[in-house]
Design a protein around this nucleic acid. Structure first.
Lengths: 220, 220, 220, 220
DNA sequence: GATGAATGAGTTTTCATTCAT
DNA sequence: GATGAATGAAAACTCATTCAT
């Protein structure tokens, strides 16, 4: 996933996301991990401080509040995932390829070592985010959803999917986000992320009369 | 849904679940509502007390702890939903009918006015339950899952579903549970619960004419 | 000061102020004392708790916040002082008597064992009160000031005072409030409150051509 | 007020007070402003740093502690005000002129753009000063008070004032210091500082024709 | 002299839970 | 069964101060 790393590097140098090697970036990653495993409410700033090796009070040198940590975890994660999705969609020319990219990117966002924790936090801890935080992040989430809806609508127009795009997106959102609860792509032997992508597509795509031509593996 | 009410009445008189009209039952319903909308952690016993009209301290005449309230909400809900599922499955003779019953029961559990809140709590607040609570409830959840897996395996054997039962169940679990976030069966005009059931089945069922036999079971 | 105690008793039974013998009333008095001697900011809820013999957290059973304690100290004090002033003014028929009542009441409010601490807090810790608190208390303070201004204006019209009422009131407010820093009416031998009242009046009143007739001691 | 500026210039070049144009002097002025408007306790070193454009930590290159800032604000202010008072008293030959100088200097100290904030801090934040700080500043304050008492005692001996000097000084101290809360000499149209001085004198001075000799009681 | 990261002791406040009445 | 006062442990957050760079 070279291009993916390039994307991240660019976002870091643009100041859009925090360098994961900086003290602040380390804190964000540890916080995402704790938020995911324990939940936001059950994670104390003491926990976070212990995880990065500073005292609780020192956290507020980097973030004004615990809420700002959650918000930043969410914001930076969706910024990265959105950038990756845009790039992946741009590389595909067929509708099927774009659907595959959407599914694959969401599975990657949900389950990769790099973004999985933050993405799961984004989905599961939404209610824990302050109203202002929600307002901010919602803008990005809506841009993300727009990509899905546009592609699904095009697929529907061409008869490649059988369900209403709106309904299908929501069913898929649930199905894909839920993978964080059971899918372990790193564990051998098992289902790879690409294989799971194909399974999902098998569910979604109406068999094309012209024997569909799943070409090889999307980027890894 | 007459038989459904009969089931509930029987469970109440058997002492398996609390009478929803009793003070304790009212408290459980209010608690389920608060747990769902605010989350377990952000709901204080003061909130619950206020909702039912008693002081916080008095709650501990009914339940030993806040955790016991959560556990009871979950236990009683899964007991009812499991009983309904058993009954519905018993009424169906075809595999397709049984699949339909599974989907429909889960959508009902997730979205009905009666059980929706508690079911959503069961799914979303699992991590908030104490280890002992989890152990207790897990027994019931596994019994519930057994019904799904058995039916899906039979369907797979007959080529009625295209995916590995284990994977399919998890994808569906995610998709169906997520409906609580967007599906409003009571709002007119819109998708009814039965209509949504059919949409889900359309996704899941292989068109019966082509009794296909895609092999290649992915691992678990 | 019998009538004065009657006034307080009535205010208590009307629920306008807290019974000083109740746990909450004790807390208010101790808080007023601490606020006066240490200042609001330097007084911790731990200090207050220690002074009344409960743990810091228990304070919030009685008051929602530290600010509410300050606000209550101020509100109840001005309610009592205002009631006393009204009564004292009502008993006087001459302008000079009313001026004497105003000065005397303010000296009493500022220096009596009963209200001195709270009154001093009201004057000195005003900035520490939250904006909402200030808004609430300001209404009462303005009513109090109104009595002063009305009387001073009448006195000015009759030539009994030499300065503009507005300016004179402010000079007097400073002079009288400041007495809390040096005046000790309880310490023998020394200036009594009534004597100090007369000194202040000597400063304020223009010697009436018609040999003024300071009748003896106002109520004690 | 030329001579006044001369005094200040001399004090600066003597090293008795900090040059207000130096970084340290700017800091002192900003701190005085913040201490006055927000109170010492509610003013953080972060606030002060922000006001002068440096980071909080850097403040400690100029002052050993926050308390030292407060102490310096107070010390330098009283040094200036005392020097001015001495000079003004030296210029007056009559008792009335000296009384006028005392009142005028105190009103100037309390309300001038240059010293008003620091003087108000001196009066209002006295309790916030550390015991050692209080000990240091008290020496200067007592020297200042000495000028008042001496002059008032002389005035009393000549029958120019009606009250005991000790009591009168305290009443006046309250009245004059309090002017910082309401007097705005810069706002047009309004009372000038000189006019207010005359009003105060009208209150204090016994009309010279009737050299009265009320012997009234001195205080404790 | 300034910076930025960290400290550590402190703050107000929250909240499940207890218990005498 | 309910009340109201209190507990006690822990929470998020503040802030003067230090110090290596």
């Amino acid at each position: 996933m070279n291009s993916s790393n390039d994307i991240k590097r660019r976002l870091i140098s643009d100041g859009e996301i925090t360098d994961p090697d900086s003290p602040k970036g380390v804190l964000l990653n540890k916080a995402a991990h704790l938020f995911r495993t324990q939940g936001y409410e059950r994670t104390t700033v003491r926990d976070i401080g212990r995880a990065v090796g500073i005292l609780p009070g020192s956290i507020f040198h980097h973030f004004r509040s615990k809420d700002e940590i959650l918000r930043t975890v969410m914001r930076e994660n969706i910024i990265v995932s959105l950038a990756r999705l845009r790039e992946a969609l741009g590389r595909e020319e067929t509708l099927e390829g774009q659907l595959r990219a959407l599914v694959r990117c969401e599975l990657f966002a949900t389950n990769s070592e790099e973004t999985g924790e933050a993405w799961t936090v984004l989905v599961q801890e939404w209610r824990s985010l302050s109203p202002e935080g929600q307002r901010e992040i919602l803008v990005l989430r809506e841009e993300y959803e727009q990509h899905w809806l546009e592609t699904l609508e095009a697929a529907r127009a061409q008869g490649r999917i059988a369900l209403d795009p709106f309904i299908l997106r929501r069913l898929l959102a649930g199905a894909l986000n839920w993978t964080s609860h059971w899918f372990r792509p790193d564990r051998q032997p098992g289902l790879s992320l690409d294989e799971l992508t194909e399974e999902v597509l098998r569910l979604v795509l109406v068999p094309s009369s012209a024997g569909d031509s799943r070409s090889g593996s999307p980027a890894a």
